[in-house]
Design a protein around this nucleic acid. Structure first.
Length: 297
DNA sequence: ATCGGGATTGCCT
DNA sequence: GGCAATCCCGATG
């Protein structure tokens, strides 16, 4: 028997409120701009504006960084997905992993091996690499500087479009299962793909120029201080011996949307972070996390 | 042509 | 915390 998927309802009032709320605290957000966003969500409004560039959109320059530096730089940035009906989903990235090419045996591109599947890893920095895993899920990466290197996006904090994310995430769950909490919407690489509606066909697209998916700096958040970034071994790659121990997973310390907390790593001095100097104000990153912890508690 | 495994998740005990 | 689900891709013959 087939429990057919429910039809996606027209954008709910709740979602509109989220957009408005999201813009409330943004300085210089005009009423006009909010109205435009609301218009774009209507089924009856055809959006002919292909210029999705916003002042916050990150350009190709951002992605031109070595893999580990980029993996850290992603933390706090906002992944945006514009759906077909114009609705925008936003999630702040809070957890990443660096996969280097060449020597890194845990990488799909280990030994410089290039296949049909991992071609995107060898494309220009900012290229999206989407691959299927376990036959049922997807994972999203972004290529970085360095031959065959890419960053896996593991977790995000839902910022906008939570009601749509809930629908997308609930579609494949058992009927009658409990409602997902907001912090459970994107706390894992495949959950992130589901909640932000990242399909396989986004493979090899350019995050710097694609009209349907892009990255933004969050004007209210800033780069985390090195001490706010935890470096831990990557997860799910146990079989790769010594390479599995490299601390190339990065997440925001104490953030409620991180998929796997590593207490041991958190107690280590974070020596791997000397490559990420920060000229931001020291405690801003922490403030954001504290505020978020309250929101999600 | 066939085979083995996987950068995960959700449900069950 | 265990374990099945589920299928694509890449390696091998």
């Amino acid at each position: 028997m087939a429990g057919r998927k429910r039809k996606m309802p027209v954008m709910a009032t709740e979602a509109r409120e989220q957009i408005v709320n999201n813009n409330k605290h943004k300085k210089q957000t005009s009423v006009k701009k909010v109205k435009e966003q609301l218009q774009c969500q209507s089924h009856y409004f055809v959006n002919n504006n292909n210029n999705t560039t916003t002042e916050d959109r990150l350009t190709e320059e951002f992605f031109k960084q070595p893999c580990i530096a980029l993996a850290k730089a992603f933390l706090g940035k906002v992944l945006v997905r514009r759906c077909e009906d114009g609705a925008e989903l936003r999630g702040r990235i809070v957890e990443t992993e660096a996969y280097l090419g060449g020597e890194d045996r845990a990488s799909h591109s280990a030994g410089g091996k290039r296949t049909e599947r991992n071609t995107a890893m060898f494309m220009k920095p900012g290229t999206i690499y989407v691959y299927p895993i376990y036959g049922i899920y997807l994972c999203m990466n972004v290529s970085s500087e360095g031959e065959g290197a890419a960053v896996l996006l593991r977790s995000a904090e839902p910022l906008q479009g939570q009601s749509i994310m809930k629908q997308l995430r609930s579609a494949r769950r058992k009927e009658g299962a409990r409602q997902l909490k907001d912090k459970e919407l994107c706390n894992g690489p495949s959950k992130l793909c589901q909640a932000l509606s990242i399909p396989r066909c986004f493979d090899r697209r350019d995050l710097a120029s694609d009209p349907e998916v892009w990255l933004e700096g969050d004007p209210n958040a800033t780069l985390a201080e090195p001490r706010d970034i935890v470096s831990a071994p990557r997860v799910g790659i146990e079989s790769h011996g010594e390479w599995a121990k490299r601390p190339w997973r990065f997440y925001l310390r104490g953030h409620p949307c991180v998929s796997v907390v590593n207490k041991e790593a958190e107690n280590q001095p974070q020596s791997g972070n000397d490559l990420a100097p920060s000229d931001e104000q020291p405690d801003k990153g922490q403030n954001i996390i504290k505020k978020t912890q309250q929101e999600f508690s």
